[in-house]
Design a binder for these strands. Structure first.
Lengths: 198, 198, 198, 198
DNA sequence: GATGAATGAGAATTCATTCAT
DNA sequence: AATGAATGAATTCTCATTCAT
């Protein structure tokens, strides 16, 4: 029988992680304001003070989740860059790979993605950063003569972010399609366009 | 002497419209939960009970704004369809016009757009509807042989919605670029793609 | 029968004053921390939100009371100064009057005095101010040759404040003795001393 | 390897004394309610349960400190009485010595004095006791014809306590003046008065 | 048409205190 | 002798909403 003051086998790190996990789920599902600390701790079978043992405040735990998302997304894109190959014909493939990686990451981290990429105030900033990075890459290829010289790369980069955003929600989260296939489709669209060439 | 209980020259419709206008601004700026009824009425120089004279609840006024957005957006797209010409060469132009119209509408109704297209719970549904409609149009053209026969029109329609979404925020709301030019850029990208054709 | 939303004959100023009055009583009796907003509103037959309708916070209402005390005490001492007569023989009498006025004020404003003069953080500052003022007066008389030239007026002024403080609690608040008589006794002691002159 | 559950070189009495010391400092500095058990143990590099190993509760440790103050102050005054000489001319000197002893004690035990003489609920009682004792002494001298026969010794005793109280805070704690000199000044004032004798 | 005055219901947060080890 | 982990019980404060006039 479990008595007060101590959960049998209780372990701090574990409780913290559990709270973090449940909080992510709650935030993702209901948004910041409709997520109640009371619900989180209830689901974790803990009491409210315990929550404050591990997190400064409701805002703090939310921010921690956003930070985590940012950090992991950042790692992902860094890594993507390092994998750069040298085969020029591989450009589309490379882009596809990068996109697919993002989709995979989003798919595997739905709650976190919802929080960091859609709910948080920093979402806008994060997207802006992502767009800036994509733009750099696009301009690089453009200067190498692979892309139309008069395409507005800012617009295109932002468009790609919009595409990612929307398809993440409608396809990835819904598991309607596999990340790689989706990435491929998009790259094809953006590179070749819709028109039938004559 | 001013009679109690009646603002000089006060007029019901006017008060209602004022509240609606301020509410739209507040919601757009701060989101649903951080918008306070007290702030709205304060800005309108009215009292809280007056608010409830015209609206059932905070949620009701929000929903009314969403509804308004939906209605006007619907009208716009209906009209867009009606303007359909028959000149086949005009397809790109027609699409551009439709897009530009949406951007113009969003630009002219920022608060409403933020509420209906980004903040509301129905936003998802609205976007889905928009995507569905776009998809119809695309498939029509595809069947007429103007677009690649194996392009996944669902994905492309959703992508276009994502593009609209993102560019509305980064370009239209910021007034960085004119609706028509932006629409043109996008259509060009989607139809022709990025690659330099040899 | 009284229903929700409106107290019969309710009047804002009245409610505010009532809360202020009860709060003063509670603070005086139990100190800042053991005074609960819930108790105050309960005694006032009002609800907690009503409290926040009139006061920013528990701290705010406390500060308001301290301010009130300070303000009224300040007025009192100002007035005391203006009543200065010119009859030199009247010095002891004048001092006695001033003291008596303070005692009377404290007697008539027990709660406020307890709050401002004893409980508040500003109490120390208020006493310091009072001492400084007394010191000025004493030095003036000293320079006119009425008091011992080598008496340390800072010490004496502080002593007088200490005397006031203590006798307020043990005599004035307990209503053991009349302000005027008490003042007289003190002045006599301080001017003539205890020793029997031979 | 350090055994769990035991600080190297830890010693019960030592930990207890440390907690007591830090608690005294905290209470003196911040008052009862703003002193947190968590802060005390943190400063002592101990855990909360350890606190409860040595003290029943927060209130208990506070009371213990008050008791300690009372006890030591009591010892002091007892001793003062025992040192009574027989030289009648020495009365002022004797009083001065007693006062100086109190001031010295307060100076050397600031935290304890703040707690017992100013913060605690018993402070009032302690002062009352001190006043009663002083009153006895004064009456004794009065009956021996050394003091004015119609001086109200209750008032004078309370006044002296007030003087002690105030000067302890403004002079002794601030180390503005030496206990002996301060005591001398006060005795001089009370015995001889301020007026220039003609 | 309008409001002064008021509140029910809840939310986050704090802190002294306690077990099991 | 000591503590990691946890909590009961408050407490302040907020906000949408409602009467009576």
């Amino acid at each position: 029988m479990i008595k007060r003051g101590r959960k049998k086998g209780a372990n701090g790190e574990q409780s913290r992680a559990l709270l973090l996990f449940i909080a992510a789920d709650e935030f993702a599902r209901k948004g910041y304001f409709e997520t109640k600390v009371s619900t989180i701790v209830h689901r974790a079978n803990l009491s409210q003070p315990t929550f404050y043992l591990y997190f400064e405040s409701k805002e703090a735990i939310f921010k921690e989740l956003v930070k985590k998302f940012r950090y992991e997304l950042f790692n992902l894109t860094i890594q993507s860059r390092l994998e750069t190959g040298f085969d020029l014909n591989a450009i589309p493939h490379k882009i596809t790979q990068g996109l697919a990686a993002i989709f995979r990451f989003f798919a595997e981290n739905q709650s976190l993605t919802r929080i960091g990429f859609f709910l948080s105030q920093e979402a806008e900033e994060i997207k802006k950063q992502l767009a800036a990075q994509i733009k750099e890459n696009l301009i690089y290829e453009q200067q190498n003569g692979h892309f139309h010289p008069d395409a507005n790369m800012l617009i295109i980069a932002e468009s790609l972010v919009g595409i990612i955003e929307r398809l993440t929600i409608t396809q990835i989260f819904e598991e309607n399609i596999q990340p790689e296939i989706l990435a491929n489709e998009i790259v094809h669209l953006l590179l070749d366009g819709l028109l039938v060439k004559t």
